[in-house]
Design a protein around this nucleic acid. Structure first.
Lengths: 123, 123
DNA sequence: CGCCTCCTCAACCAAGTGGTTGACAAAGGT
DNA sequence: ACCTTTGTCAACCACTTGGTTGAGGAGGCG
């Protein structure tokens, strides 16, 4: 399974059931049984989902008698927002610069096809 | 494949190669060949990755002769940040309230074990 | 002690994923 | 007109995934 943390977090949240679990855990800690109840899948399936979330660092399980209360570790979410925001902003910045270029260019029928012209090719 | 848009976006970014593609596309549009060059996988593999990104709405492909310049559609990222932020904030809020409760409670040796006590059990 | 509850582990299965290779369409270059 | 470049489609493969059932461990309860 994907070694890097970021992939694990993204993958963990790529499942609707898992996202719903996170949503519910944002409200309150809960036991596996409580969490499983609304969905019509087995408790084992939910337990597996929780393990995925745990491996992603999104959730922690402690002990309370036979119960294993699940707790949301929300900090990991910042990892994602950091990544996302970085590139969203970068893309925005690029569009802004492109607009500037286009604005300062009266008309040039060759470059209207695409911005491919200013590509910085590696190697 | 996961029907809902949010799952598709999360799943799309759960792969390091795909995240790298997004990162590079944030800088500039590029052709499939350009994008494939740095990785030591086939062009077909990259083309597949791009399709996943496209299905997630993260990327669009146009035409320029035989080339198919790929363009990043950064707006979809907001879908994710919206989701993430919502629950991160909700969790934070909860911790704040819990702190308040604990602060207003001098000492109660029974409730120190866990916050399980204030669980709102359904049905 | 014996049972019942809560949960995980193990084995299995169908479907999806990331990769490969091979064939081929589309468009230019010569 | 050919050949080359650029990219997709299709078939195939190993592996992962989300689900199932069955067994079992850990810990109260009568």
């Amino acid at each position: 399974m994907a070694a890097d943390p970021l992939s694990r977090v993204f993958a963990a949240l790529a499942d609707p059931t898992r996202r719903d679990l996170v949503a519910r855990l944002a409200v309150a800690d809960a036991t596996v049984g409580d969490l499983a109840e609304p969905y019509d899948v087995s408790v084992q399936a939910v337990s597996k989902h929780l393990r995925v979330l745990e491996d992603a660092g999104l959730v922690s399980r402690s002990r309370d008698a036979q119960r294993r209360p699940v707790h949301l570790e929300a900090e990991v979410l910042d990892l994602m927002t950091a990544w996302i925001e970085r590139y969203r902003r970068q893309a925005e910045e690029r569009y802004r610069r492109l607009d500037d270029v286009l604005a300062s260019m009266p008309d040039d029928s060759d470059s209207t096809t695409g911005p491919t012209t200013e590509r910085g090719n590696p190697s």
